[in-house]
Design a protein around this nucleic acid. Sequence first.
DNA 1: CTTGACCTTCACACATGTGTGAGTGTTCGA
DNA 2: TCGAACACTCACACATGTGTGAAGGTCAAG
Lengths: 143, 143
Amino acid sequence: MRIGELSRRTGTSRRLLRYYEEQGLIAADRAPNGYREYDERFVDRVLQIRGLLGAGLPTRIIRQILPCLDKPRTIYFPDATPEMLATLRRERDRMTERIGFLTRNRDAIDAYLDAVLAYGGGDGAGDGSPADGLSREAGPGRR
Amino acid sequence: MRIGELSRRTGTSRRLLRYYEEQGLIAADRAPNGYREYDERFVDRVLQIRGLLGAGLPTRIIRQILPCLDKPRTIYFPDATPEMLATLRRERDRMTERIGFLTRNRDAIDAYLDAVLAYGGGDGAGDGSPADGLSREAGPGRR
DNA sequence: CTTGACCTTCACACATGTGTGAGTGTTCGA
DNA sequence: TCGAACACTCACACATGTGTGAAGGTCAAG
């Protein structure tokens, strides 16, 4: 498929697909006319890149860890140099930290929402379109 | 305390502390001479901001959720408007997504590291200074 | 009073991810 | 064959988080 279709199927602008390529995250081959040509595997690949970017990792890191995450679970070691392994461990630990932070803060938000809910009474949980009048008038007049 | 001390105690540059204030994340009051004056509570606050930023949230979002996470677990509802609650729910869900993505990918990295370890033999796990000779000799010295 | 450490604001600079448009070539259907 | 839709490269633009420096105010110690 060409870039337009990949763009549609991944919800990623053409611009970004070219950018990811420029960053060494994906390597499309070219048709004789110069057009990029992608096969099915790129759909997942791009989605994974988006996910990692969305999770806050920079392309520089993604470039390094992506080969180790390659889809067909090939236990194929590209260039498992000691430095590479160190990078992976470091990155894994950073991700664990992030997960911890995100979890703690998400839980705090959740607890807050529960509290508001319990206080203000029945609001259909989750859909985010309350439209009831629970707003404020809050307890201890404390502003 | 003044900005220099807060900077030292949080490992955050003065520049960034001022930036966070400009972004509405912290509100220092001023001494008569114009100096920012912080109390103890700001240390945790700044650390939490750093954590959220590090987890990939933009200041715009942090500004919104921070009041609900305020330390002394005060069930104090600032202005729990329906829109605010919707934002919180949305953000919580986005955080959950991120957590899922990070977890899956971290586990994949972990599995890869385990596989390499099992394959290449004993490498002191975790310290990241292997110095053994498991490398590869593989592939054309990329880079 | 001077020096040095600390504070202020302002402003330019940079990397990163992303949008947008210009100018040009290619493909394909009417 | 024409025009629409698509592709290409190049390049400027923007927001965000962060570094850095200039020009100047405050204050305590010598």
